[in-house]
């Protein structure tokens, strides 16, 4: 399990936290007219990004605060942590070595071998 920098408590073991889904999704009010499709889009559909995703976590064993985080879901690298209500910070683009984010010819769990001339 990775470590997470709680914006309130500091760096803690990931087991103190719970994942709470994609961030920056606003709930359509039930008062507005909204199509079945749009509502299902809110309730069920996900972007399910492979790459940098804005997502919510809660420090469930610590301060119980929900917060946002930018994480590369393909590598589990956490790029930024920010509080609820804040806009995601700019982060460096993470170019993926191949469209799938992994070296060709292997699952992304496989050993990566450097090519000639690569440093």
């Amino acid at each position: 399990m990775f470590e997470i920098e709680c914006p309130y408590c500091g760096r803690r073991d990931g087991s103190e936290f719970s994942y709470a889904g994609e961030a920056h999704i606003s709930r359509p009010s039930g008062d507005e007219e909204i199509s079945d499709e749009a509502w299902a889009g809110f309730v069920f559909m996900c972007r399910n990004i492979k790459g940098v995703q804005a997502e919510r976590w809660v420090h469930s064993a610590g301060c119980r605060r929900f917060f946002n985080m930018l994480r590369n879901t393909a590598t589990d690298q956490i790029l930024a942590v920010y509080k609820m209500g804040e806009e995601p910070p700019e982060v460096e683009k993470q170019p993926l070595p191949s469209p799938s984010g992994e070296s060709l010819g292997s699952g992304n769990d496989a050993v990566q071998v450097m090519g000639k001339g690569e440093t």
Partner: peptide, 13 residues
């Protein structure tokens, strides 16, 4: 693992 992830790796826990 409850978090979304494509890393083909979960926690030891």
């Amino acid at each position: 693992d409850h978090h979304l992830g494509y890393s083909q790796r979960g926690g030891l826990n």
